[in-house]
């Protein structure tokens, strides 16, 4: 049997091997909510910046702990800074939360299919986000709002668990007042002092201002939320080939070689994470697939 020779021969030249992480330094840590935070990263190596498309993800490695897929949450037009927004729920993301300015992370990516950047540029876009699902959509919002002159209306429907768990409150305010985003926020539960909407995000869909005959919908959140969102969007008359969703599955390699993220015939890491709904609508109702 071919076994690994004991004496490790090592190479330090940063190559192009997608299995080898590139080093990034934590520039800033921002606590977004109780359990969600954003890391702003800068490349440690010689770099022309981190080019990516909205909706893509990176495999993020914390030294000695492990590696997880995390969507990129920054502005695609600001390639010098790489942003990841995530919840601290597993060993790796909990270790990420302990990182401070100057600490180093390994990054492999960007991987995966993006939101339909070209298709939506001149159209009305209705974005439906649930919880942390707003993070992979933020690059798309930046992108759309930067094309203010050419684009159609952009509507965001965003559901969070409680008012304290609303992400990017500062940006939401700015997008609304300065860049013309029509944002509607709702929470699942709130105390009496909350002035906004209460109810699941799907309840915003029937009254949202968009033209179903031409709008494109981008949806990201827990799978159950996406299923019900698609149902409501369909009731309004958006056809399934103008609805896009972003899926989550276990991923180890990020490039279609490990088999973990299979979803029927698809590899979520390379055929997704963004899928046009009509591609996957037959798979969505199947259990444990």
């Amino acid at each position: 049997m071919a076994t690994e020779s004991e004496g490790l021969k090592l190479r330090n030249a940063p190559g192009t091997d997608p299995m080898r992480p590139a080093l990034f330094e934590v520039h800033r840590v921002r606590q977004e909510t109780r359990d969600t935070f954003t890391l702003e990263l800068r490349s440690r190596g010689p770099s022309d910046g981190f080019q990516f498309l909205p909706g893509q993800f990176n495999m993020v490695y914390v030294f000695g702990v492990g590696e997880v897929p995390i969507s990129i949450s920054g502005d695609p037009n600001r390639p010098n800074a790489l942003f990841h927004t995530t919840r601290a729920v597993g060993a790796v993301t909990k270790a990420m939360r302990r990182l401070r300015r100057g600490d180093v992370l390994g990054i492999r990516g960007p991987f995966g299919a993006s939101w339909p950047v070209n298709e939506v540029s001149a159209r009305e876009v209705i974005i439906v986000a649930g919880g942390i699902g707003l993070a992979p959509l933020r690059p798309m919002i930046y992108q759309l709002l930067s094309q203010r002159d050419q684009r159609g209306r952009v509507v965001l429907l965003y559901g969070a668990r409680t008012p304290d768990e609303i992400l990017f409150t500062h940006e939401l305010q700015q997008w609304r007042t300065q860049l013309g985003l029509e944002a509607f926020v709702t929470v699942d539960r709130a105390h009496g002092d909350w002035q906004g909407n209460v109810g699941v995000v799907t309840t915003l869909i029937p009254k949202a201002p968009f033209d179903p005959s031409q709008a494109v919908a981008l949806v990201c959140g827990p799978e159950v939320m996406m299923r019900f969102t698609v149902m409501e969007l369909s009731k309004r008359g958006i056809s399934k080939n103008r609805i896009y969703i972003s899926m989550e599955r276990n991923m180890k390699c990020g490039i279609g070689l490990c088999g973990h993220c299979q979803f029927g015939p698809y590899y979520v890491c390379k055929d997704g994470p963004v899928f046009r709904y009509d591609q996957v609508q037959d798979l969505i109702p199947l259990r444990e697939i």
Binding site: E4, L8, K9, L10, G15, R20, L23, R44, G64
Partner: peptide, 30 residues
């Protein structure tokens, strides 16, 4: 098992100060 061995070390990393560096493992094929 020869082309896609049951276990392969892809790289090693060692700490230096705040950070670490990654050394790719040169794969031996023969």
């Amino acid at each position: 098992q020869y082309l896609h061995p049951p276990s392969v070390c892809l790289w090693t990393a060692s700490r230096n100060g705040h950070g670490f560096e990654i050394m790719e493992k040169v794969q031996e094929a023969g």
